[in-house]
Write a protein that binds this DNA or RNA. Sequence first.
DNA 1: CGCCCATCTTGTCAGCGACAAGTTATGCTG
DNA 2: CAGCATAACTTGTCGCTGACAAGATGGGCG
Lengths: 189, 189
Amino acid sequence: MAKRAYHHGDLRRALLVAAVEVIEESGPAALSLRDLARRADVSHAAPQHHFGDKAGLLTALAAEGFDLLARELADTRAATGSFLELGVVYVRFAIAHRAHFEVMFRPDLYHAGDPDLVAARRRAGDALYSGVSELPDVGTRRDVREAGLAGWSLAHGFATLWLSGALPDLGTNPEEAARPILRQLNPYA
Amino acid sequence: MAKRAYHHGDLRRALLVAAVEVIEESGPAALSLRDLARRADVSHAAPQHHFGDKAGLLTALAAEGFDLLARELADTRAATGSFLELGVVYVRFAIAHRAHFEVMFRPDLYHAGDPDLVAARRRAGDALYSGVSELPDVGTRRDVREAGLAGWSLAHGFATLWLSGALPDLGTNPEEAARPILRQLNPYA
DNA sequence: CGCCCATCTTGTCAGCGACAAGTTATGCTG
DNA sequence: CAGCATAACTTGTCGCTGACAAGATGGGCG
C-alpha cells in the first residue's frame, strides 16, 4: 500500500493530507482535484495518476478511515474491554477524523466495491461487533445482534448529529457529552 | 411561499420534484442545475431565477424536509402519544423521504441561516422534544434532555446507517427492523 | 551504459455554476 | 381596453472542473 518516495517526495500522501484539510474546512462537496494539485504544487493532472479519478481519491480516504477506526476500536477493547467505552471511542474517532468519517458513510462519493476498502470496512465491523458478544447479560444470538446494532446506531447518530451542528450546545468535549447519552442504552447500564 | 402558475405551470415545484428524483438515484453530489433544467424542458438559467443558486435550491429542499418531518411527528404524537413510535416515524420519514433527509443534515450544502429553513427546523425540533417530556419515569430536566438526545441519536443513527447501506441485511421493512433496536433504550423499556 | 517504466506535464474537451443582458407574457391600473 | 410594470424565462458568456490523451523526465536496474 505505502508507495516509495519519488519526484515530489510522496505526492499520494500529500494529496490525501490536503484533501482532509479541505474537507474539514468546507465539506466533501467543496473538494477539487485541481485545488489539491495546486496545494501540492504539481500539475492539474498529477492527482489522476495516483487515484484514477476523484472517486478514487475518496475511496482511498474512506479506506484509510475504516482502517484507522478498526485500529482504535481494537486498541480500546484491549485496554478496557468496556462496551460503553467502545461507543465513546467511536464518537471520538468521528470528530477527531471528521473528514474521513464524513466520506466513509457516503458510498455515492467513492468506489464502494474497491477491495482495499471492503477489507478495511470489514475489519472495522469486526472490531465493533467483537465487543458486543462479551456483554454479560445478553442471551440469544438475536439479542447480541440487536444490542450491537443499537450501540452502533446510537454512537453513529450522536456523532453525525454533532458534526452536522444539529445538536444543542453540549460544550466542547464530545466524549464527555456522549457518555451520559450512551449510558441510556440498556446493555450499557 | 407557494407560487402561482405561470409559463411553465409551476417550475419551482417541478424543479424540486426533479431534484428529489436525482438525489434518490445518485445522491446530492450528482445534482446539477442544468440537468434539472433539461428535465423540466426549460433553459439552463431558469432554475437560478427561482432559487438564486444551487445552494438556494437545496435550502428549499431542506426546509421542505424539516416541515414534512415536523408534521409527521406531530401527527404521530397526536395519534399514539408513544415515545417509541416517535422514533419509528423518524426512521420511516428518513427512508421514505430519503432525498430530503440526506440534504437536511448537510448544512455545508445549503444556506443554513435561511429564515424559512430555520423556522421549519425549529418546528421539527419542538415536535421531537415535546414527546420526551411526557415520559413517565424521567425525573430531572437533565434526565429528560439526555433521554431525548439518546432517542434522537438512536433513530438518526439507525436511519443514516440504513441509508448508507452499512447495516447488515435486515429485510425490506425499515420500520419493523427499527423497532427492536429502538427498544434497547432505557426510557423505551 | 542504456533501457524501462513509474511519475508527472501539457494540452484539450465538454459540462458545470454564476452572472449579465435581453425577451416574452401576465396581470394590474387607469 | 390600452399601456405598462414586472415576474418568468432565454441567450450568451466566463472561469473552473474532471477526465482523457500524448508527451516529457528521471530514477533504478540489468
